[in-house]
């Protein structure tokens, strides 16, 4: 499967108009200088030759060097250096989405048709409809530029000299007990994470609400009521537990979709993660970076869904025993 993916990614990238040579040289490049650069990059070869070269090197862990994002640097190094940033951002974003989406979805279902329900359903509709980059700019403008509450760019303020251990800035700060660094890194995460969380939040909210509404009408909830159980027990044990089944699947899908959002969000907030590299990679037609990053993203996506399937089995005994 990974092989098929790699082929698809490879072919798709080559099909994009414009090449690294023109991107690197810009409009000033002559026909000759372009050809020379292409040759130097091995792009004059037939595409399948290029693919097998790429594959052969990839199998040994060599994905080549960047041509546009950080020219000359090894793609693997660039990835390793940026990956923790994106993970930090995504984890915080999905946590926000879950922590806000599930309780609100549950409340909206309980007060179905009420003011709160209508308001939050409306808000969640806007949440999915507004483009991420627009929201990101808006947040940045209001909270960073206008109010000045939060930083607008980067992962860490320049005047903080933090020790790096793992590359996860918040974690580093905690490990080294450099609390100011940890806090500063966290504050830098907030705006991009909120922007990134919007869509998953809206989706999780809506799925939770719909699932709770469904479950409230189930016969087993009526059975639970007929036993005279306390409201809290019915809600936790009987309603929420069942309503979580579709929500778990949704969370998995949303984690997968986060990367797309991360490309835009990281770009807006100058957050040097994988997403930003991808965005730059597209602008500069940096094939080595794009190839590896997209491939890894696809693999991560597959792994996340595998994890989701496994955790689904944890909550649903019908899948466990079959």
């Amino acid at each position: 499967m990974v092989l098929v993916l790699s082929l698809l990614v490879f072919a798709w990238l080559r099909a994009l108009p414009g090449g690294p040579a023109s991107a690197l040289l810009g409009d000033r490049g002559t026909e000759e200088s372009r050809a020379a650069l292409s040759k130097q990059l091995g792009l004059d070869q037939p595409i399948f030759v290029q693919y097998f070269r790429f594959l052969g090197r990839a199998l040994t862990g060599n994905f080549g060097n960047s041509t546009g994002v950080q020219p000359g640097d090894s793609v693997v190094d660039i990835f390793l250096q940026r990956f923790p940033a994106t993970i930090e951002l995504s984890v915080l974003a999905i946590l926000i989405a879950i922590a806000v989406g599930i309780p609100l979805g549950y409340l909206a279902a309980r007060r179905r048709g009420g003011l709160f329900d209508n308001f939050s359903v409306g808000a969640s509709l806007i949440g999915v409809a507004v483009p991420v980059f627009f929201l990101a700019y808006l947040l940045k403008y209001v909270f960073a530029t206008k109010l000045g509450w939060l930083p607008s760019l980067g992962r860490q303020a320049g005047d903080i000299d933090a020790t790096r251990v793992t590359g996860f800035f918040v974690l580093d700060g905690i490990l080294t007990q450099e609390w100011d660094a940890a806090w500063d890194a966290f504050v830098h995460l907030l705006l991009p994470a909120v922007a990134l969380a919007t869509i998953p939040f809206a989706v999780i909210f809506r799925i939770t609400r719909a699932a709770v509404l469904d479950v409230l009408n189930e016969d087993y909830v009526r059975t639970a009521e007929s036993k005279g159980l306390l409201g809290t027990v019915i809600r936790r044990r009987h309603v929420l537990r069942n309503a979580m089944l579709p929500v778990v699947t949704t969370i998995g899908l949303q984690i997968g979709a986060l990367l797309a959002g991360a490309v835009l969000t990281e770009k807006v907030f100058g957050f040097s993660g994988v997403g930003e590299a991808l965005a730059l990679g597209f602008e500069r037609r940096d094939y080595p970076v794009l190839q590896m990053f997209i491939l890894v993203a696809a693999i991560v996506y597959v792994l996340v869904n595998l994890l989701v399937d496994l955790s689904y089995a944890l909550v649903d005994p019908r899948i466990r025993t079959r």
Binding site: G228, L229, R237, R241, N242, D316, P317
Partner: peptide, 18 residues
């Protein structure tokens, strides 16, 4: 009429506990 995600035992005992 039985909750599909919790064991039979708990569905009986919860009423006794209550």
């Amino acid at each position: 009429s039985l909750n599909p995600v919790i064991p039979i035992g708990l569905q009986v005992t919860e009423v006794l506990e209550r």
